[in-house]
């Protein structure tokens, strides 16, 4: 990336942030949203516990802390949604509001727009994470362990890998011109198979095998192991290596796939149709 690309990226982020704040109610809801889902999870975990412990759950995961398990899964899951939803959905939104061609007419790589737009979403998710953490600490006594630094070392490459995946995925949205269905399928599939809401080992064997091919599974597993001491699927170093390799692979693959589809769409003349 050249210096000019960073300015462009910054301009896109500023523009997105401005538009985000011009719908104040939506902005408030987006930031407060995690607190809404956190409360039922807490009370459900209480109802499943016997003397503060859930033996079945503990056998699967190596921890009795159901709330923390779900909380971490959902925080990581929210980054998956933030990137995936935003890559595809923002493209669709630009198509619908008629601004996509104006962006494509500028002398920049189209994927800069994708990265810029989803960066705002990741920033909002970052704010969400802090809010959820604070609420969980104040309301339910959830504490952060000292392994936060290593956990971030796993989370950050995972988010970058997701960007790569998201760029390819945005290309598919550009081609099929359907963001909602695709985003739902993609997000739900990843949520189910990568063990966001339950241990991946609880899945039936064929599904578990598919889940174990996803780098996100290892990222979520490693973060949980580092922060709340669950039993990891593989050594944390191995998980980190998988996430780092997938980061490079997805970034390269994402760009190649997107550029090919972009060329195809320019041939078909469907850039402005939706």
């Amino acid at each position: 990336m050249q210096a000019q690309d960073w300015y462009v990226l910054w301009a896109i982020v500023r523009k997105e942030w401005r538009i985000f704040l011009r719908y104040p109610l939506n902005a408030l809801l987006r930031i407060a949203d995690p607190l809404i889902w956190l409360t039922p999870v807490y009370f459900m975990s209480l109802s499943f516990s016997v003397n503060g412990r859930a033996p079945g759950f503990e056998a699967f995961t190596g921890t009795h802390n159901f709330l923390a398990f779900i909380l971490l899964g959902n925080i990581v899951g929210s980054y998956i949604s933030a990137v995936l939803w935003n890559m595809g959905f923002s493209l669709k939104q630009e198509m619908e509001q008629g601004t996509l061609e104006s962006l494509w007419l500028t002398p920049n790589s189209p994927w800069l727009h994708l990265i810029g737009r989803s960066t705002v979403s990741v920033l909002v998710t970052g704010l969400n994470t802090l809010g959820v953490w604070l609420a969980a600490y104040l309301l339910f006594g959830f504490e952060i362990t000292s392994a936060l630094g290593p956990a971030l070392l796993v989370l950050i490459p995972m988010v970058i890998a997701l960007y790569g995946f998201g760029i390819a995925y945005a290309g598919i949205v550009l081609y099929l011109r359907d963001a909602v269905t695709l985003s739902d399928i993609g997000t739900y599939t990843l949520q189910i198979l990568s063990g966001i809401n339950f241990p991946v080992t609880a899945l039936p064997r064929p599904l578990m095998i598919v889940g174990l091919t996803l780098p996100m599974t290892y990222a979520i597993d490693a973060i949980r192991a580092l922060l709340i001491g669950t039993t990891p699927l593989v050594a944390i170093e191995v998980s980190l290596a998988i996430v780092l390799i997938s980061m490079f692979v997805f970034l390269i693959l994402g760009r190649v796939v997107f550029e090919r589809i972009d060329t195809r769409v320019r041939k078909m003349g469907t850039l402005s149709t939706h």
Partner: peptide, 24 residues
Amino acid sequence: AGDRSLYWKLSGRENLEFFATLYH
């Protein structure tokens, strides 16, 4: 053709400043 190629939730100045950066 058409008048939907601008960001309606930005001001005229904000639109131009944004695109000025995009046009280097």
